[in-house]
């Protein structure tokens, strides 16, 4: 389409996802399955903050910064020196706009987390919130994080994980389920938490946290489903009925994959010797 405007499209998609998932574009960590998804997704950010052990002035690299939601908390609450990177140009603009509106200081640049081009040992913290599953070369991401971390620095990461091996024949058998997930969320690859730990160890980091939080994230799907019902008409206006349908179908599939312990969610942190 000649007048197709990717920025406008991204904007509609972002608004639709905000209605479905909340302003943070990530899962929730629920203490009570009935609590609002915004409370739970904020708690996931808080858990990452706890593991990151932040202090004012620390240089933080936010890899896969989305539209800058979590980054705004890091700066507003912990006064860190923040660089957010994402492969999405529109994401960079949106995050800059958010920071300007909130009168926060931070930099956002379009860079690839697996090959950042940033100097060695130039950050105290590397933060990767639910972005690693979109980077197929997982080892390159961890190698790059280890490279840019200064001595004594720390990597914190959380994401969807694979909890068991999925053989080729099983993948083939269940290909329609996985195709729905790909249509809803894009091409992704999930790895076990142990794979992150192995990459970290290979690149000179000492792993100190490796926690499975699948149970605590499981209520996310019901919360998103409730949002899809509540905001049905507005979301259909933004992205159309077919896309909403794919999103809703993906929720039952993910619940099944969580319940049969195929997929889940993990949080991980590692330290560079100081």
């Amino acid at each position: 389409m000649a007048d197709y405007d990717p920025a406008a499209h991204y904007d509609r998609v972002t608004r639709a996802w905000a209605l479905l998932m909340g302003d943070d574009l990530h899962y929730g960590y629920f203490e009570d399955p009935a609590e609002p998804v915004a409370t739970a997704s904020d708690r996931l950010t808080s858990l990452m903050i706890e593991h990151a052990d932040l202090a004012p002035g620390l240089r933080v690299l936010d890899v896969g910064c989305g539209s800058g939601g979590p980054a705004s908390r890091l700066v507003a609450e912990h006064d860190v020196d923040l660089l957010g990177i994402t492969t999405s140009a529109v994401g960079v603009d949106t995050a800059r706009g958010r920071f300007a509106a909130l009168d926060l200081s931070g930099r956002f640049e379009q860079r690839d987390g697996t090959d950042t081009g940033l100097p060695d040992a130039s950050f105290d913290r590397v933060w990767v919130l639910e972005a690693s599953h979109l980077m197929p070369d997982r080892e390159a991401l961890i190698r790059e994080a280890a490279r840019v971390l200064a001595p004594g620095g720390r990597l914190v990461l959380c994401d969807i994980i694979r909890r068991r091996e999925i053989g080729f024949l099983e993948l083939r058998e269940r290909r329609e389920e996985f195709a729905v997930l790909r249509a809803a969320f894009g091409a992704a690859r999930m790895d076990p938490l142990s794979a992150y730990a192995e990459h970290a160890a290979r690149h000179g980091l000492t792993v100190d946290v490796e926690t499975d939080i699948s149970a605590e994230t499981r209520p996310t799907f019901a919360a998103w489903r409730a949002n899809a019902e509540r905001h049905h008409d507005a979301v259909v206006d933004l992205i159309g009925a077919d896309e909403l349908d794919v999103f809703v179908r993906s929720l039952a599939i993910l619940e099944g994959l969580w319940d049969d312990k195929t997929l889940g969610y993990g949080i991980f942190s590692a330290r560079r010797a100081g």
């Binding site: 083939r172 290909r175 091409a187 690859r189």
Partner: peptide
């Protein structure tokens, strides 16, 4: 697969079927 045609595991499963 990687560094070639670039099929991921799901695409390979789809081609197989």
């Amino acid at each position: 697969y990687a560094d070639g045609v670039g099929l991921d595991s799901l695409e390979t499963a789809e081609l197989s079927a």
